[in-house]
Amino acid sequence: MSITRIDMGPRMSQAVVHGSTVYLAGQVADEPKGKSVTEQTAQILGQIDRLLAAAGTDKSKILMATIYLTDIAGFAGMNAAWEPWVAQGNTPARATVEAKLVAPEYLVEIAVIAAV
């Protein structure tokens, strides 16, 4: 079975397709400084759309999402962007946890696994 790597860098790939499954690396906002959890989430969801399209799939095929928030108090703000974006009738399994992220300006990080 082949493996395809998308947006591969020296440390990691942004997406890896193996068989009929695509694994996305945790996505953070490109320009997080001064942005709210809702704004960062919306930016991340756009990145997820782009990576899924590059892998030949879309958000309706997401199987699992893991969402990391630096402060769980941002849960409602994250959902304000997530709920209108997620494919209704095809909502994935999901876990949301509070975690310290790589830099203080990042408020949210999202990783997904999807079918191709």
Rank of each mutant, 00 (worst) to 15 (best):
M1N: 06
S2L: 07
I3P: 01
I6C: 06
I6A: 02
I6P: 02
D7H: 11
D7F: 06
D7E: 13
M8I: 11
P10V: 12
P10D: 14
M12N: 10
S13T: 05
A15F: 00
V16G: 00
V16M: 09
V17P: 01
V17H: 01
H18W: 10
H18G: 07
S20Q: 14
V22G: 02
V22W: 01
V22P: 08
Y23E: 05
L24T: 04
L24Q: 03
A25M: 09
A25N: 11
G26Y: 10
Q27T: 07
V28L: 06
A29R: 02
A29E: 03
E31F: 07
E31H: 12
P32K: 05
P32M: 03
K33C: 01
K33D: 07
K35M: 09
S36C: 00
T38Q: 15
T38M: 10
E39A: 13
E39D: 12
E39N: 00
A42W: 05
Q43T: 05
Q43G: 02
I44P: 00
G46Q: 13
G46L: 10
Q47S: 08
I48Y: 04
D49K: 05
D49A: 06
R50G: 01
R50S: 08
R50I: 04
A53L: 10
A54D: 13
A55M: 04
A55V: 03
D58W: 05
D58K: 02
D58M: 04
D58S: 14
S60V: 06
S60A: 15
K61V: 02
L63W: 08
M64D: 13
M64K: 15
T66G: 12
T66E: 15
I67E: 08
I67P: 05
Y68P: 00
Y68G: 03
L69F: 10
T70A: 05
D71G: 07
I72E: 08
I72V: 13
A73V: 11
A73E: 14
G74K: 11
G74H: 12
F75K: 15
F75V: 12
G77A: 09
M78N: 06
M78P: 03
N79W: 05
E83C: 06
E83K: 14
W85F: 12
W85N: 00
V86D: 00
A87V: 02
Q88I: 09
Q88W: 08
Q88A: 13
G89H: 09
G89P: 09
N90M: 07
T91V: 12
T91L: 10
T91R: 15
T91H: 09
P92W: 03
P92Y: 00
A93Y: 13
A95E: 13
A95R: 15
A95C: 06
T96D: 02
T96E: 06
V97I: 14
V97C: 04
E98V: 07
A99G: 04
A99T: 07
L101N: 07
L101S: 05
V102R: 11
V102Y: 04
V102Q: 12
A103W: 02
A103Y: 03
P104M: 01
P104I: 05
P104K: 14
P104E: 13
E105M: 09
E105C: 02
E105R: 06
L107E: 10
L107R: 14
V108S: 04
V108N: 11
I110L: 13
I110T: 06
V112K: 00
V112A: 01
I113K: 14
A114Q: 06
A115G: 09
